[in-house]
């Protein structure tokens, strides 16, 4: 009896696992060709294109993204950068870079002292669980970086 029970449970579980693998495989085929290119290296390359040889320092950026995003189609992203936002000292640009999407560039924002404070909110797509980078470029050319790991339940790129 207990053996039978075990077998039944096992076979049901096997079925579920098989079904799950099938889904993953289908999703994999859809994303694989471009996703493979979009790893950390792509993000590094984009960052070099955006800020050149400047080495971004940690700090100054508060990055608010839920750790667990159920819907990868619209993940809320909040960014705020410490800065007086005066004519002499302000945040010039904020770049959002994805380490796990088919393409690494998400968005780049241009700010000015007229913004008063460097704080933005937007929603982004995430194809899968990944690290998101935010780079802030200051008016003196220095740069800061923040990273955040986000787990995505349902990818949002298709």
């Amino acid at each position: 009896m207990s053996n039978n029970e075990n077998e039944r449970r096992l076979s049901r579980r096997d079925l579920l696992v098989a079904a799950g693998t099938g889904l993953v495989a289908v999703a994999g085929i859809a994303l694989a060709p471009r996703a493979a290119l979009a790893a950390e290296g792509e993000a590094d390359k984009l960052m070099a294109d955006l800020i050149g040889a400047t080495k971004p320092a940690e700090g100054k950026i508060t990055l608010t993204i839920p750790e667990l995003a159920e819907n990868g189609g619209a993940v809320p992203v909040g960014i705020s950068v410490e800065s007086p936002m005066t004519d002499k000292d302000y945040v010039k640009a904020i770049h959002i870079i994805s380490e796990g999407n088919p393409t690494p560039n998400v968005a780049s924002y241009t700010l000015s002292p007229a913004c008063g404070k460097a704080s933005i909110n937007m929603r982004m797509r995430m194809a899968k669980s990944q690290k998101v980078r935010v780079v802030a470029v200051m008016s003196d050319g220095s740069a800061y970086i923040a990273r955040k790991d986000v787990k995505v339940t349902t990818g949002g790129c298709g």
Partner: peptide, 27 residues
């Protein structure tokens, strides 16, 4: 533009969600 002067801008990629929402600040 705020009274004709460029104050804020955005360049977007495909990873910006449908019906894009964006908030920012002005003085």
């Amino acid at each position: 533009k705020y009274n004709g002067k460029d104050v804020f801008g955005g360049d977007f990629g495909t990873a910006v969600s449908a019906n894009p929402f964006l908030s920012f600040h002005l003085k």
